[in-house]
Amino acid sequence: MTTILFNKPFNVLSQFTDSGSQGSPRKTLSDFIDLPGVYAAGRLDRDSEGLLILTDDGRLQARIANPRHKLAKTYWAQVEGIPDDRALQALRDGVVLKDGLTRPAKVQRMDEPIGLWPRNPPVRFRKSVPDCWIALTIREGKNRQVRRMTAAVGHPTLRLIRFAVGDWTLEGLAPGQWSYA
């Protein structure tokens, strides 16, 4: 069984080929990983960064990707504004989205992560609007869920990094790097 941890950079697709590109091809996993037979366990949107697990074990892939297993996924989100206690409590209680109520999340404000790499292109900075980092742990995987949750409580996500999936973390992995789990 092969399982690898990959720190997916911003603007990279979570697949090995780019079938939907119009014009110049977009970066894919094949630009970073040359291991036959491994596939992404779950997804991470092109505009999100961070931990992506790849494996050749179908059972492990299903356990990671299928929401019924409720595997915890922790994200670091840079959000617009400074969420107050009421906004954080709303995330903890579950947020109503167009596709239903989210499960309760663990959430807390945090300092900018130590050793955080710069994003290319950088997040837009506005002098008149402060921003803040939060750590958010969810146990489901609705499409673009973290971004939709933070927007629903009035704090749109500016930058999103998946830090952990279950017990696996990004520790020691620079963007574009991978290691065996």
Rank of each mutant, 00 (worst) to 15 (best):
V129P: 01
G42A: 07
T150V: 05
Y75R: 11
A181F: 15
A41E: 03
R59I: 10
Y75H: 06
P122I: 12
Q78W: 00
L116N: 10
V123W: 10
S128E: 15
R124W: 03
W117S: 15
L44K: 05
F163K: 11
L173A: 07
G50R: 09
N66R: 08
A105K: 07
S19E: 12
L71N: 05
L35R: 12
A62P: 00
A152V: 08
D47W: 12
S48N: 04
K27W: 00
K142T: 08
M1G: 13
Q177I: 03
L97Y: 11
P36T: 07
K142P: 07
L29D: 00
R92C: 02
I114D: 06
L35G: 00
W76P: 01
S48C: 09
E112L: 04
R68W: 08
G42C: 03
I33P: 00
L158A: 11
Q78M: 14
T150M: 14
N11Q: 14
G58P: 00
P104A: 06
R63W: 14
L5I: 10
L170C: 05
T169C: 06
G58T: 05
V95I: 14
S30V: 05
R46G: 02
T150S: 14
G23N: 13
R147W: 12
V12P: 04
W117T: 10
G20A: 13
S14L: 02
D47K: 09
R103S: 11
N66I: 00
R124Y: 00
A181Q: 02
Q61D: 03
R92V: 01
G166K: 07
L97I: 11
T150H: 08
R126F: 12
G81C: 11
W133F: 09
A65G: 03
E49Q: 09
R92N: 04
D84V: 01
L54P: 00
G100D: 13
I134E: 01
D99A: 03
P118D: 08
Q145N: 02
T55C: 11
P83Q: 06
P36E: 06
V38Y: 11
Y39V: 02
T169R: 08
R109P: 01
R43Y: 03
